[in-house]
């Protein structure tokens, strides 16, 4: 089911992508934690008081800003890029290139291959957000000691990790179903982007609010997390979605014909 040699090989061949995305995410959280000190936030809130539509969303506290802007926008886009590229590269990309033959002939069973790949995908996201959380807390501690609500930040980060796991499950299943990189990318990226856009539009006007029911991103309710609302059920659904999609990918890949 799990092969450590294969895991190390996957990590070695994808470390650059991981480092780049993690570095950008860390840099962004550093900027946010150091720039949005209480005085800046109150200034922005003051300036936006009479604006009809606030382009930054509700940002009356640091947690709001982190929830809305960081996890609602920057990190979301970057992580979608990360999972789409990585998810596709791990399975469909290798089948398309033909290099999958080397792993399977090695011999690694198909199930071991997909399970190990899925574990890498999820654990790399976990490590990525552990780093983001650590950097965020560290910078906040230096720039504005005591102003960051660490437990809220932890829940926001952890919930976001679950959201990314669910999204990566979709990319993963697309990668396991298709033998062509182009098809896997179209479906994996297509659905992820669709969810992202639907989430964005649902927040823009009350007419489009119903769109929030067709995107899984709204299951990660950062407002509820910040305001101690009910967010747990949404996160549980995300876990279930993730498990279903990863399992579907693993089962599909075990049964299909490979053009190798």
């Amino acid at each position: 089911m799990f092969n450590s040699t294969l895991f190390r090989q996957i990590a070695a061949s994808n470390h650059k992508l991981f480092i780049v995305i993690t570095a950008i995410l860390s840099a962004l959280i550093t900027v946010i934690m150091s720039v949005f000190v209480p005085s800046t936030i109150s200034q922005i809130a003051e300036a936006n008081k009479n604006a009809g539509l606030n382009p930054l969303g509700d940002i009356s506290t640091l947690s709001d800003f982190v929830g809305n802007q960081y996890f609602g926008m920057f990190a979301l886009i970057l992580c979608i890029i990360y999972t789409v590229v990585l998810g596709n590269r791990m399975i469909a990309g290798q089948v398309d290139r033909g290099s999958m033959a080397y792993h399977l002939a090695a011999p690694i069973s198909r199930t071991t291959l997909t399970v190990t790949s899925a574990i890498y995908l999820v654990s790399s996201l976990a490590v990525m957000f552990a780093i983001v959380f650590g950097v965020g807390c560290g910078v906040a501690e230096i720039a504005q000691p005591g102003k960051l609500d660490i437990s809220t930040f932890l829940t926001l980060t952890f919930g976001f990790f679950l959201l990314q796991t669910a999204l990566s499950g979709i990319v993963f299943v697309a990668s396991c179903v298709f033998n062509r990189s182009s098809q896997s990318l179209t479906l994996g990226a297509g659905i992820s982007i669709f969810f992202f856009v639907a989430n964005l539009l649902s927040g823009l006007s009350s007419k489009l609010e119903s769109l929030k029911h067709i995107t899984i991103i709204t299951l990660y309710d950062s407002k509820a997390i910040i305001n101690d609302g009910s967010y747990v059920s949404g996160l549980i659904i995300l876990i279930v979605i993730g498990i279903i999609f990863f399992a579907a990918g693993i089962v599909t890949f075990r049964r299909k014909d490979l053009p190798l």
């Binding site: 590269r89 033909g98 290099s99 033959a101 792993h103 399977l104 011999p107 069973s109």
Partner: peptide, 21 residues
């Protein structure tokens, strides 16, 4: 197939190796 592969050496027609190695 996995048991079979243990006894097998395979040279594919169109060789495509894993990336970055």
């Amino acid at each position: 197939s996995q048991q079979v592969q243990r006894h097998l050496g395979y040279l594919p027609a169109e060789i495509a190796f894993p990336e970055n190695m």
